[in-house]
C-alpha cells in the first residue's frame, strides 16, 4: 500500500495530503442538492474525467468489500463511503490519488503521499484540478477565487494536511504549546486527533493550513515546508533530550513496549499506539540492537493500528475479537511476516 512506502522524514511525518475542492456552476452545493442534481453532477464529472485516466465508481452502490478496498487504497473516509446519497469516486492508477464526488463539494481531489513530500502531493492534485477547470464551468470569481461550500476554504479551495507522529514534543512539557504558537504565526493549525468515542490518538497530530485567501499557492506550500522543517527539527531535539536525560526510563519503556508488541495476545488500540510511540521515541537515540525493529516496521505498525481507529463505519466487517486480531497482526509485522 502507498502509505507503507518509504517517504521523506517518515520518522516524524506519517503522510501528507492535499485536498482541492471545486464546484460546478449551475448547481447548489451538495448539502442542498436534489437527487436529480446529484445525478447530473455525477454524469458531468464522469464525462469530464474521461481523458484523465480515472476509473469511475458509484460509491452508493458499492458492497462492503469494494468500500473496504477503496478505503484501504485511497483512504476515502467511511463516513463518505457509507453515505446513501448519490456519491461517486474516481480512482486513479496512482495509489493515494482520487476524486470524491458530491461529498462536501461537487469535486474533492485528494492526493496523499507517505512522508513529507508536499510538492508531489500538490502537483498530483493540482494537475487534476486544472484539467477539471479546463473542461467544466467551475464556480469562480475574481474577488473570492474558487467558491466552496465551506467558507473557510473559499479562495484557493486547497487544504494541506500533514499527519505527524511527535511523541517527543508531546512528552516535553510546554513544547506542544510552543509549537502551536509557532504554527499560528505562519497561519497553520496543529490539532490532536480526537475520535467520536472520546478517545485520542496519543502522539499523533494533524497540521493544516488556515489561509486560503491572501496567499498564493506557491507561498502556501513554501510556508508548509518551513513549518514542517521546524517541527521535524523540534521533534528530533525533544527525542534526543528525553533519551539523553532520562535514558534509563526511556530504555526500559522502549524494551517493555517492544516485548508487549512482540508477544501480547490481546492489545487495544490506545495501548498499542502508546507502545509504538515509545519505539518511535527511542529508535534513533538508544541502543536498540536487542529489538528486531526498524523504521519501516514502526511506520507500518503505526499505520495499521491507526486504521483500526478510522474504520469505524457501521457497516464495516470486523473480526469478532479485534484486540486479539490486532495483537496477531502486530506480532506478524514485528516478525517481518507478509502483513
Amino acid at each position: 500500500m502507498w502509505y507503507e512506502n518509504e517517504g521523506n522524514n517518515k520518522e516524524t511525518v506519517l503522510s501528507t495530503k492535499v485536498v482541492i475542492s471545486r464546484n460546478i456552476k449551475g448547481f447548489p452545493f451538495p448539502p442542498k442538492m436534489s437527487d436529480a442534481d446529484r445525478e447530473n453532477v455525477l454524469g458531468m464529472v464522469r464525462q469530464a474525467s474521461g481523458s484523465m485516466g480515472l476509473n469511475f465508481v458509484r460509491t452508493d452502490e458499492l458492497d462492503d468489500t469494494a468500500k473496504a478496498d477503496i478505503f484501504e487504497q485511497f483512504f476515502a473516509g467511511y463516513q463518505f463511503l457509507n453515505n446513501d446519497a448519490k456519491t461517486g469516486y474516481l480512482r486513479s492508477k496512482t495509489e493515494g490519488l482520487g476524486v470524491i464526488i458530491n461529498s462536501t463539494d461537487h469535486i474533492n481531489i485528494v492526493s496523499m503521499v507517505p512522508g513529507s513530500d508536499i510538492e508531489t502531493a500538490y502537483k498530483r492534485a493540482d494537475e487534476l484540478a486544472v484539467k477539471f477547470e479546463q473542461s467544466m464551468d467551475i464556480a469562480y470569481t475574481d474577488k473570492f477565487g474558487f467558491l466552496t461550500s465551506q467558507i473557510q476554504l473559499v479562495g484557493t479551495g486547497m487544504q494541506l494536511l500533514m499527519t505527524l507522529a511527535i511523541p517527543g514534543i508531546e512528552k516535553t512539557e510546554g513544547a506542544i504549546q510552543v509549537l502551536q504558537r509557532r504554527a499560528e504565526k505562519y497561519d497553520w493549525q496543529l490539532i490532536p486527533i480526537n475520535h467520536p468515542d472520546g478517545t485520542r490518538e496519543n502522539g499523533i497530530y494533524v497540521l493544516k493550513n488556515v489561509a486560503t485567501l491572501g496567499i498564493t499557492e506557491q507561498d502556501l506550500l513554501s510556508r508548509a515546508q518551513k513549518v514542517q522543517a521546524d517541527i521535524i527539527k523540534l521533534e528530533n531535539t525533544c527525542r534526543k533530550n528525553i533519551c539523553t536525560k532520562k535514558k534509563p526510563i526511556v530504555e526500559d519503556q522502549y524494551y517493555r513496549s517492544y516485548a508487549l508488541l512482540r508477544y501480547a495476545r490481546r492489545l487495544d488500540i490506545a495501548e498499542a499506539l502508546t507502545c509504538i510511540n515509545w519505539l518511535r521515541l527511542g529508535q534513533d537515540y538508544l541502543d536498540t540492537s536487542e529489538a528486531d525493529v526498524d523504521w519501516q516496521k514502526i511506520n507500518k505498525l503505526t499505520q495499521r493500528v491507526r486504521r483500526n481507529y478510522q474504520d469505524s463505519g457501521d457497516r464495516v466487517t470486523r473480526p469478532k475479537d479485534r484486540a486479539a486480531a490486532r495483537a496477531a497482526l502486530i506480532r506478524e509485522i514485528i516478525k517481518g511476516g507478509k502483513e
Partner: peptide, 24 residues
C-alpha cells in the same frame, strides 16, 4: 483567515510551483 483578497491562480492556469529541495 486574516485576508479576503484572492491571490491564487485562475481556473485552468498552470502554476509551476517550485519548492526548495530540503534535506531536512
Amino acid at each position: 483567515q486574516g485576508s479576503s483578497e484572492y491571490m491564487g491562480r485562475k481556473p485552468g492556469d498552470r502554476v509551476d510551483v517550485e519548492l526548495e529541495s530540503e534535506p531536512v
